[in-house]
Computed example of a mutant assay.
Amino acid sequence: MTIWTNPLSIDQANAMLANTICEVLAIEITDIGEDYVAGTMPVDKRTHQPFGILHGGASVVLAESLGSIAANLACESGFVCVGLDINANHIRSVRSGLVTGVAKAVHIGRSTQVWEIRIADDDDKTVCVSRLTMAVIAK
């Protein structure tokens, strides 16, 4: 059973990323399941930090982007969700390839939502785990 109250197609979700930081970092939505949103981001010169590994801030951009899309898909009509707090634990470094994030709900309430986003490398090893709290506000 789906948790989405405002469903979108993958194409519609990706269209929302145009002209945003997601476009600059080549973040792409790849799957919208019954209770999750997944997306990818390349690990390359756009997302590296000076030591040639994935920048933690880039991981946070991916996490917040996936969680924000998911939160707004699950938001009641007449409301929108905006970021309130995010944290990230950087578990493993990555030098190249693609990372994949999956956002799943921890809590969907009337005034707040909490989402957990796991980011993994090409071998499905955890790179980052993030928790995003969203405020639910009237449009």
Results as ranks from 00 to 15, higher is better:
Met1Gly: 15
Met1Val: 13
Thr2Phe: 08
Ile3His: 04
Trp4Asn: 04
Trp4Ser: 03
Thr5Ser: 13
Thr5Trp: 05
Asn6Met: 09
Asn6Gly: 00
Ile10Lys: 09
Asp11Asn: 14
Asp11Met: 11
Ala13Met: 06
Ala15Ser: 12
Leu17Gly: 11
Leu17Ile: 11
Asn19Val: 05
Thr20Leu: 06
Ile21Asn: 10
Glu23His: 05
Leu25Cys: 08
Leu25Asn: 00
Ala26Lys: 15
Ala26His: 09
Glu28Pro: 00
Thr30Asn: 06
Asp31Glu: 15
Gly33Val: 03
Gly33Ile: 02
Glu34Leu: 11
Asp35Lys: 12
Val37Pro: 00
Val37Asp: 06
Thr40His: 03
Met41Arg: 03
Val43Ala: 05
Val43Trp: 11
Arg46Pro: 06
Arg46Asp: 01
Arg46Ser: 02
Thr47Phe: 04
Thr47Val: 07
His48Met: 10
Gln49Lys: 10
Gln49Trp: 07
Pro50Asn: 08
Phe51Cys: 04
Phe51Leu: 14
Phe51Met: 13
Phe51Arg: 12
Gly52Arg: 03
Gly52Gln: 05
Ile53Arg: 12
Ile53Asn: 12
His55Trp: 09
Gly57Pro: 12
Ser59His: 09
Val60Phe: 06
Val61Ala: 08
Leu62Asp: 01
Ala63Lys: 04
Glu64Val: 04
Gly67His: 01
Ser68His: 02
Ile69Val: 12
Ala71His: 03
Ala71Trp: 01
Glu76Gln: 11
Glu76His: 06
Glu76Cys: 03
Glu76Trp: 02
Ser77Gln: 10
Ser77Ile: 01
Gly78Lys: 02
Gly78Val: 00
Phe79His: 09
Val80Met: 08
Cys81Phe: 06
Val82Ser: 05
Val82Gly: 00
Ile86Leu: 10
Asn87Glu: 00
Asn87Val: 09
Asn87Gln: 06
Asn87Asp: 05
Ala88Ser: 14
Asn89Lys: 10
Arg92Glu: 03
Ser93Gln: 12
Ser93Phe: 08
Val94Cys: 13
Arg95Phe: 10
Ser96Lys: 15
Gly97Lys: 09
Val99Arg: 07
Val99Ser: 07
Val99Pro: 10
Thr100Trp: 05
Thr100Asp: 05
Thr100Met: 07
Gly101Lys: 12
Val102Glu: 12
Val102Gly: 10
Ala103Gln: 07
Lys104Glu: 14
Val106His: 03
Val106Thr: 13
His107Ser: 14
His107Thr: 14
Ile108Asp: 07
Gly109Ile: 11
Gly109Asp: 06
Ser111Ala: 14
Thr112Ile: 15
Thr112Gly: 07
Gln113His: 13
Val114Gln: 09
Glu116Asn: 15
Glu116Arg: 13
Ile117Glu: 02
Arg118Asn: 15
Ala120Val: 15
Asp121Glu: 09
Asp124Tyr: 07
Thr126Lys: 10
Thr126Glu: 08
Val129Ala: 02
Leu132Ala: 15
Thr133Trp: 07
Thr133Ile: 05
Val136Ala: 01
Val136Pro: 05
Ile137Gly: 07
Ile137Asn: 04
Ala138Asn: 14
